[in-house]
Amino acid sequence: MAKRIVTFGEILLRLSPPSHLRLTQATSFDLYYGCAEANVAASLAKFGLPVKFITAVPSNELGESSLSMLRSFGVEPIAFMQGKRLGIYYFEQGASERPGKVVYDREDSSFSTLRKGMIDWETIFKDADWFHWSGITPSLSLELAELCKEALVVADAMGLTISADLNYRPTLWKYGKNANEIMPDLVQHCDLLLGGIDESEKVLGVPKNESDTEEMVFSNWMKFFPKLKNITSTHRMRANASSNAVSASIWNGTELLQSREYNISHIIDRIGAGDAFMAGIIYGLITWPENHQMALEFAVAATCLKHSISGDINLATVNEINALMSGFGGGRVSR
Rank of each mutant, 00 (worst) to 15 (best):
V217E: 02
R22N: 11
Y283L: 04
G272E: 11
P207T: 03
L21F: 01
A79R: 09
I88N: 08
L86N: 12
R169M: 02
A157W: 00
K223P: 01
N263F: 14
V206R: 03
G176Y: 01
A323G: 09
M118L: 15
A151E: 10
I264Y: 02
K126Y: 01
E297R: 00
E210A: 15
Y175I: 04
I119E: 12
G48N: 03
V75W: 03
H235Q: 12
V246C: 11
K208T: 11
I282T: 05
S233V: 11
S65F: 00
W133K: 01
C190R: 02
M1G: 13
Y33L: 03
D105W: 06
L305K: 04
N244S: 10
R115F: 05
M237T: 10
V187F: 04
G135C: 06
Q25Y: 00
S43F: 00
L228E: 03
A241T: 09
R332H: 13
N252M: 08
A273N: 02
H292S: 03
A2N: 14
E150Q: 15
E261K: 14
F8S: 10
G74A: 05
R115M: 11
L147F: 13
H307Y: 02
H20V: 11
F328H: 14
D312L: 04
I286L: 14
L13T: 03
N314G: 06
H20E: 10
T213A: 11
E10V: 12
L152M: 12
L305E: 07
S96P: 00
S16T: 15
A239S: 15
N252F: 05
H235A: 06
T7M: 04
V75Y: 02
A155W: 10
L147N: 05
G34N: 01
L172P: 12
D127N: 14
N291W: 03
V51M: 06
E97L: 15
Y89K: 09
E214C: 05
V102D: 09
N209L: 12
C304E: 07
E92K: 11
T303H: 08
D198E: 15
N314L: 08
I282L: 14
H292Q: 14
L15T: 10
L44D: 03
P207C: 05
E320T: 02
I286C: 11
F224W: 14
D191K: 02
D275R: 08
L228A: 02
V333L: 15
I124Q: 08
F224D: 04
V51T: 08
W130F: 15
L194A: 05
G331L: 07
T137E: 08
H235F: 12
S249P: 04
I281T: 10
L15C: 07
I88W: 00
S66E: 03
L204P: 09
C190V: 11
A295V: 07
P99M: 13
N180V: 06
V206E: 09
M325K: 09
T234S: 15
E143G: 08
E181L: 05
L70P: 05
V154G: 08
Y262H: 14
N240A: 09
N322C: 11
A164H: 03
N319H: 13
N263Y: 13
